[in-house]
Amino acid sequence: MQKIDRDKEVLIDYSINMAKVFIRECQEFYPFAATIGIDGELIPLLNYDGNEFSSSVDVLLDLNNLLNSQLGNTKRAYALAYDVSITKNEKKSDALAVKIKHLESEEVVIYYFSYVSGADNNVEILDSWGEIQ
Rank of each mutant, 00 (worst) to 15 (best):
V21Q: 10
G130L: 00
R6W: 10
F22K: 15
Q2A: 13
I4K: 10
K3I: 12
S85K: 14
A97D: 03
D120I: 08
I16W: 02
K101Q: 15
A81E: 02
F22S: 09
V84R: 09
F22T: 06
V10I: 12
N89C: 13
Y112S: 06
K3M: 13
N73F: 06
G130E: 07
M18I: 03
N65K: 14
N68P: 05
E107V: 06
L45V: 08
I23R: 12
S54K: 02
C26W: 01
K88N: 10
I4L: 07
S128W: 01
L126E: 05
M18L: 06
T74D: 09
V109L: 04
S15W: 05
K88P: 05
A97M: 02
I43P: 00
I132N: 07
T74C: 01
I36M: 14
S69C: 06
E52M: 11
I12K: 14
P44F: 02
L11C: 08
F113R: 07
I132D: 04
R6S: 15
V21E: 05
D83V: 03
D7I: 00
S128V: 01
Q133T: 01
I132A: 10
L71F: 08
S54M: 04
D58R: 08
E90G: 01
K101H: 11
G50Y: 09
K3P: 02
K99P: 00
Y78I: 05
D127T: 04
Y14K: 04
M18P: 00
D83W: 14
A77I: 01
L67S: 03
I12M: 13
Q70H: 11
G37I: 00
Y78C: 08
L46S: 12
Q70I: 06
I43V: 09
I4G: 00
Y111K: 09
V116R: 11
L66T: 11
K3L: 14
V123L: 10
L103D: 00
I16C: 15
Y48F: 15
S105N: 07
D94I: 05
I36K: 10
Y111G: 04
N122K: 11
I12R: 08
V10W: 09
S114P: 05
E28Y: 15
I100R: 03
G50N: 09
D58K: 06
D39Q: 10
D120M: 08
L66G: 00
K75W: 01
L71P: 05
L126K: 13
I110A: 07
V59W: 03
V84T: 11
L80N: 07
S56M: 14
G37K: 12
V116N: 13
Y14C: 07
A34V: 12
N65H: 14
V116I: 15
L61M: 13
E90Q: 15
